[in-house]
Simulated scan of single mutants.
Amino acid sequence: MPFSLAKTIGLTKVGTVFRTSLLARAFAGGFVATHIPIIALMAYVATGADVNAGAVLLVALLATVLGTGIAFLVMHHLVAPIGFLAKDLRRYRQEGTLPALTKTRADDIGRLTDEIRDLIGALEDRMARLRRQAFSDSLTGLGNRRWLSENAATEIARAKRDRRPLSVIAFDLDHFKRVNDEYGHETGDEVLIAVAEAAKPVLRPYDLLARIGGEEFCAVLPATDQRGAHLIAERLRSEIAAIALASLAGHRITASFGVHEAQLQTQRFRDMLRQADQRLYEAKRAGRNRVHPDRSATHALLAGSPVRS
Rank of each mutant, 00 (worst) to 15 (best):
M1T: 10
S4C: 05
I9V: 08
T12S: 11
L22P: 05
L22C: 07
A24I: 14
F27D: 08
F27I: 15
G29W: 13
F31T: 12
H35E: 02
A43N: 06
A43I: 04
V45A: 14
G48W: 01
A49P: 02
G54E: 10
L57T: 14
V59M: 10
A60F: 13
L61M: 12
L61D: 11
L62W: 12
G67W: 11
A71G: 13
F72V: 09
L78S: 02
L78Q: 02
L85C: 00
L85S: 01
K87E: 10
K87D: 14
R93W: 14
Q94Y: 14
K103G: 01
A106I: 00
I109H: 06
R111G: 10
R111P: 00
T113R: 02
D114K: 05
E115S: 15
D118K: 06
D118I: 00
D125I: 12
A128C: 00
R129E: 15
R131S: 11
R132H: 07
Q133H: 12
Q133M: 05
A134G: 14
A134F: 12
S136H: 13
G141S: 06
S149V: 09
E150R: 00
A152M: 01
I156S: 08
A157V: 13
R163G: 06
V168S: 00
A170G: 06
F171S: 03
D172L: 03
D174W: 01
D174Y: 03
D181A: 08
D189E: 09
V195M: 03
A196N: 06
D207R: 08
R211S: 08
C218D: 14
A219P: 03
L245H: 11
A246V: 11
S247Y: 14
L248E: 00
V259D: 00
H260P: 11
H260V: 08
Q263D: 13
L264R: 03
M272F: 02
Q278I: 13
A283H: 09
G287R: 10
H292D: 03
A300F: 10
G304F: 09
P306K: 07
